[in-house]
Design a protein around this nucleic acid. Sequence first.
DNA 1: GTTAATCTTGACTAAGAAGTACAGATTGGC
DNA 2: GCCAATCTGTACTTCTTAGTCAAGATTAAC
Lengths: 158, 158
Amino acid sequence: MKLGANEEYGLRCLVRLGYAGEGGSLTIPEISHAEGVSPAYAAKILRILRKGGFVKAARGKEGGYMLARAPESIVIGEVMDVLGGRLFESSFCETHAGQAAICTRSVDCSVRSLWRAVQVAVDHVLSKATLRDLLQNEEEMNAWVRTIPGPSGLRLMQ
Amino acid sequence: MKLGANEEYGLRCLVRLGYAGEGGSLTIPEISHAEGVSPAYAAKILRILRKGGFVKAARGKEGGYMLARAPESIVIGEVMDVLGGRLFESSFCETHAGQAAICTRSVDCSVRSLWRAVQVAVDHVLSKATLRDLLQNEEEMNAWVRTIPGPSGLRLMQ
DNA sequence: GTTAATCTTGACTAAGAAGTACAGATTGGC
DNA sequence: GCCAATCTGTACTTCTTAGTCAAGATTAAC
């Protein structure tokens, strides 16, 4: 059970764009540098996000990417689906579903019901979280960091 | 976020062995046929399970595989770890952890905290479930199937 | 209209996971 | 001892995902 690179970096790019604020736009070089991926790869990921309707692009000079929708309307689960597909697509019973037969291959069914339980647990997190939540989280984080006295003991990255 | 083939078939093979009962053993051809994978692939998976300490093998004639431990002591989460690794190994903050710096790259941290939440949700399911639970589930399933009147309308597979 | 900055697209290469093949080692039964 | 059934290990092929590249299309600014 692994998280794909598209999901990891795709979500980061999206949050980065959200961080740019209402109507704020960022270019591919900016995003790729901020997230530590190559411009070519960032471009590929952003294309996926654009086709998914989460971001929109402006071409030409002064162009760039920006969010296509309000952060609170962007559900992370939907973003993940676009970036990496659903967790469990494997399918034994499903392949026989059209035959209107009941599957007595108990191994299949008991394992499958476990996958379902995991899927539900994951969805419970991802379908409730919106991009707004992630941005919020970040603001709280930043506020907290500002309360820390420095600069002696504490070194801030970047 | 995808389930690996090893995890899918590995767990099936394990449940199949559990189904064989206390001290019951199955050969690779038997397991591979029952689960619909090639003998070569089943062998590969079973080797992983053996190295993980979940099953043990007897070689030579009359040989085969059997559970190495009692079903109630086999936690599914541990099996999954051996078969496919942990969900989130990606690591931005982690790479800087040794530097004792606090990460203000908020995109990284907010995304990371989401992954953590998903991981916790998944673990909540997988660390509670044991092989015994899956076998139990199967028995209930079979009992239910037996209550269905047949053979006219209902076709049972396999 | 020219230019430079930008996204767009499809093809390409690299890396990893999935799945196969085969020669070798072990063991029970005769 | 011999044979057949079985697991063991390594190397191999195939397929998917990750990541790169280069040529093209679009646009704002001058």
